[in-house]
């Protein structure tokens, strides 16, 4: 089991898997942004951000 763990971690550490993981995360990030924007989340953020947030400044 220990040997298997070691192999797995070594594989994770390889530079190719780092690159693949980075690319995967970047692709996931872009996909999330697009999905969120299509879901209307960007509009939700905008609506909140253009009004003074009373709780944030200590009123409420």
């Amino acid at each position: 089991m220990k040997k298997a763990d070691g192999k797995f971690m070594s594989a994770l550490c390889s530079r190719h898997s780092t690159l693949a993981f980075r690319l995967l995360l970047l692709a996931l990030a872009v996909a999330f942004v697009i999905l969120g924007a299509l879901n209307g989340e960007a509009l939700e953020v905008f609506k909140k951000a253009v009004r003074i947030c009373l709780e944030c400044i200590g009123i409420g």
């Binding site: 996931l28 990030a29 999330f32 942004v33 969120g36 924007a37 879901n39 989340e41 939700e44 953020v45």
Partner: peptide
């Protein structure tokens, strides 16, 4: 918090995506 606090969403893919980037 504004997005997940609205009744329409339980998680914000938009913000998670931006922060992950």
């Amino acid at each position: 918090q504004a997005v997940v606090g609205s009744p329409k969403h339980r998680i914000s893919f938009y913000i998670l995506g931006l922060l992950t980037f």
